[in-house]
Design a binder for these strands. Structure first.
Lengths: 153, 153
DNA sequence: CCTGAAACGCGACATAA
DNA sequence: TTATGTCGCGTTTCAGG
């Protein structure tokens, strides 16, 4: 069931995206409202699943995750069984941060975050031993120019 | 200045990534410690920049962001001036959620989140009018199989 | 729907062991 | 380093405009 989102809701969402730690009072001030209504709106959007869980952004480099690959995958197999196994493999591997099924001649793209190139190779070998893929291209990130989860509300 | 991260720190980070809203007591219980030490560790990691800002995960689809493109960019220009203008353009556009400079024959990859295909075209036209790029390939996501910012600690 | 206020819990820090 | 304790803020709730 779709929840109506008005301009105030959008402002609240933008504020939460920018900093989920700020107090209700601060948000209320920024959106031109006050505590209780803001709280009620947030609760409703949480219940509706529009606001998901709360998290922190960590410094990947500082924690030793120095390699990031984008992996382009072509497959020849498109049956349900293969797809099921492939999806399960992706979801079970924590180094896969993103996985999208694509339109066009490339079938999937993954974003894989690992400690180093060797760790990527281990991941890659494990993946292709689980499911057969026709063609794989890995793009190595040299520099993360920009990274955000914020939607352009 | 590199901060030493031990096993307990890693557990705390994992807990925060999973749910940044939980109380110190809950985290302390999960990592087998108690309030104060956990709080001290968190404070230190915040100061060191290992823990960045706090945010919420929003449901992009529910908010009308139904199109997601991965954009592969090749350029022939590699001078500092061009690069400066290109980076500025990427950083100033909120629909660009990620931008990486790559090794290999593709120079950049972007992740672009927009309301629909038309909005992507508007973005694309605006971008290429600002900076000259040699070759652009857009990959359209049909399905977001997995999406997380969590590092595999 | 919003305002105002009350109550409780929790985070923030100081103190001490 | 950890445990204990206090203060004040913030979340959450409820009674009324």
């Amino acid at each position: 069931m779709p929840v109506r989102i008005d301009a105030t809701d959008r402002k609240i969402l933008a504020a939460l995206q920018a900093d989920a730690a700020q107090s209700l009072d601060e948000i209320a001030k920024n959106v031109g409202s006050s505590k209780t209504p803001v709280w009620n709106r947030i609760r409703k959007m949480r219940e509706a699943g529009i606001i998901g869980h709360q998290t922190v952004v960590l410094d990947a480099e500082a924690l030793g995750f120095e390699a990031c690959f984008f992996v382009l995958i072509r497959t020849s197999e498109h049956d349900a069984d293969w797809q099921g196994r492939f999806l399960k493999a992706l979801k079970s591997r924590p180094e896969v941060q993103e996985a999208h099924r694509l339109a066009g001649d490339i079938d999937y793209i993954l974003k894989v975050r690992v400690k180093n190139a060797r760790a990527y190779d281990i991941f890659y070998q494990a993946l292709i031993s689980e499911v057969k893929v026709h063609n794989v291209t890995a793009l190595l990130s040299m520099e993360e120019i920009k990274s955000t989860v914020a939607l352009p509300l």
